[in-house]
Design a protein around this nucleic acid. Sequence first.
DNA 1: TTAGGGCTATGG
DNA 2: CCATAGCCCTAA
Length: 589
Amino acid sequence: MTAFLEPLPGLLDDPLLHLPDLPPRTDVRIPPLRDPFPSRALTVLSPLEPNAPDGKQIQGGVKLGCSKNTSQAERTNPKITPADVISARDTKKPNLAISALVESSSTSQLPRLLTPSFVNLAAVENNSSFHSWPAEYSPSKRVKLDHEYHGDYVQLPKPPQKEANKRVLLLPTIVNGIHEPPPSAALLPPMELEEVKAMLDSISEPLPLPPEKMLNPEPEPADTVNHHRLKSSSPTEEMDMARNISTAVNHRPQRTWKKWSEEETQQLLKGVAKYGAGKWKEICADPELRFRDRRPMDLKDRFRICFPNTNKEKMEDVGASARSEKQLSFNPGQTRNNNVTHNLPSSTDTLSSPPSDLSPNHPSSSHFYQVPSVPLNLKVTPSDFAIAAKSRASQRVRKLWTEEEHQNLVKGFAKHGYQWTAIRNDLELNLSHRKATDIRDKFRSLFPQQYMDADSGPPAGRKNTTSAGGVSSKNNSMSSISQPATGVRHINSSNPTSDKRKPSTSFAPIPMAATTTKPLHLRTDEGPRDITTSGVEVLEITSITTTTTQESSSAVPNLTLPPLALGDNDWDWGDNKLAPLLDWEEFGL
DNA sequence: TTAGGGCTATGG
DNA sequence: CCATAGCCCTAA
């Protein structure tokens, strides 16, 4: 704070800023200040000045920053010298507007030693920070232009760099802009000293560290983390870039799908053992625990996967339990179904070798989950997951899709796009007996090309359960860049090269011989949401590969699609006979 | 800030 | 076809 205040001479004529033990200034040397009027004609008075015209009268407005189009030759700025400043003070006009000084000054050799009108000259004089300035800044010596003068502004001498704090202090706009008040600045109330000091305090506070603590400094696998890259060399990265843009626009990052690694899980368990379950923020902020851009909520979700049986009602300190037993385990079998009650043995020899840094350093809290009181192990291996997968609940009985369901699926996609839940909840489609994932999987099976070739991949758009009509309130909050979410998909089959393992747009199209490559119009320019408004759906699925009743498909050996038994009329969306639009009254509105 | 629930991608 | 993981949103 103080270190920041001291190098700001003249900003405030505040006795508090004057060190009492400092001798009065006798040799005033005005340092070159940043040009406060880089792009404005100096004939225009600052709106803060008494005789300044009204802001509305200023033509052309004022641009913050420096005008790069203004050449040196064009600058005929009058110069003032420190002597002028002193003269102004001696004439009992310490607050004389600099512009007045400028107008009356024409003899200075110094390059544009201008000070904004708000600079109090007395404070400039009394400030001791000018004592140590180099002699080249003395009034009698011209300032070097080659390295100190950068066109539109005069570079202040660099203060000694502090080793511990090399960050660039980013001044808020209000501070940057103070060098050049806006045209309407005269309308602003005067800034109180305390406000300025508080602002400076906030400026000098350290900036927050990056939220992510990279687990591995080395580059991460492309299939797990790729959102840090700026170059777009794959559809996945393009999507990530879009998501980054979305982050900048909506301030709500859409992160990439990052699978929890074993190491990360161990870090989480260490954190739980150290702080206790529920202290996700503390765990996430622990510098000793390294996660890959995980948020406290992510830790919670991950722990929820690890310990699905835990609940707050039991309120037992996980950390205490782990500390007492010096162990903490993750039972991958006890997943959501809770069908597995036994602890799965780890395939590695880590069960009996908990990390040594599991020491309890923090007191426990009463808001903790309970963990199974079984021998705990801190190591979770992929094999554990594999074993757990074998212990799944009995699967559902397969239920083959009928042709009617196929047609309803197509209609549902035409209506709701990738909103599988909306398709499921659409009573007109009669697919409520199918799960949303079933519908999605079936569509992916029927139209892999279209599913995979969407511009930004299958949307990650989310919807509320209340959006049975297809309108998702959550989607409304999503980025229009990263998540069209409502099914605006420019579907085509022009991207046959991708890794299916990669998310979304990186799906590799399944090779299919198109017995019927029928250009369908299953695309809407506005998405399903607009369908409800237009009433007519114009979706477009180009080169959709399916079998129709008119064309034989059995002759193609590698045909993979089941027969849809759709006639031409089924695809004639111009004669669309979709379910009637839902009225607002149906939503209770 | 966290807990709980929902949705979708992932992958067997 | 299905379960699960990962991510997100909202309420408390």
